[in-house]
Nucleic acid binder design. Sequence first.
DNA 1: TATTTAATGCAACTTTGTTGCATTAGTTAA
DNA 2: TTAACTAATGCAACAAAGTTGCATTAAATA
Lengths: 141, 141
Amino acid sequence: MILFFSTFKLSYICVMGILRKTKSVKILLDEFEKQSTAISAITLIERFHLNMNKTTIYRILDKLEDDGFLHSFLGKNGHKWYAKCIGCTNVEHHDIHPHFQCLDCGKVDCLPTDVLIPNIPNRKVDVSQILIQGKCEECFS
Amino acid sequence: MILFFSTFKLSYICVMGILRKTKSVKILLDEFEKQSTAISAITLIERFHLNMNKTTIYRILDKLEDDGFLHSFLGKNGHKWYAKCIGCTNVEHHDIHPHFQCLDCGKVDCLPTDVLIPNIPNRKVDVSQILIQGKCEECFS
DNA sequence: TATTTAATGCAACTTTGTTGCATTAGTTAA
DNA sequence: TTAACTAATGCAACAAAGTTGCATTAAATA
């Protein structure tokens, strides 16, 4: 199924999870469009608790990940973070890149670098998560 | 301060966190001595809830990490895992290696491979966590 | 506009981990 | 060996992140 999200400057999203263009979905898609860094589920709950319930937020994030629109990963304290995918579909996620979390301000960025995970004898590698922690550009100086 | 743990086949641990050789400390040290793979905090709580309180387990793990005897990292669901360090001290952890978690059986191993995290312009890299997920030797065949 | 059902809100719950405080038990010194 | 000191423990209550079930609401469509 294919939906047209013209107002979000997305040409289309191939959808399995998200079926209806609700207010909540619009708000969250909008947020990921305008923010380039990753956003944690908790931050979204703080930011939009007046607009929608936390359950709704968790469910929409889940679906957007299934759809290949967002990818998720675990930050510092095991908190879940989300960021826009590049070239992913509902069949497979392709954007395996490291994430950088600033230990001062907590911000998380996707690093454009591709990291090659070597094959490991007798094991099948499905996913790899690389979280680099340190000081970001702003907190470095 | 230096304590002698002869019964655990450790020559010594340079200690800042652990000061007293209590029953609980002995049990946990023993467990890490005899198991080569990583162990999650939750597993230890399940395994030893008759011997000691979960608070005690969390506190001892914390201290053993401070001491450079264990290192910790986050697995699949943000759960905390612990494994023995190699060549770490209470001043600095040196053993930055990837961890492999089997998505079938959940087991986590430390991979001996060293992974080089490239410097990133304008950022200071402190720690890097690499979690590779897939199928382990046993679950692969 | 009516119908269908995906999506939502809410409350209650689960899981992992933390905190404060009274009690227990290692360690050290007499 | 014993007494004194205080680190370590157990317990209960709490906190935060995330999940579940179910009644209600609101997109999509016919």
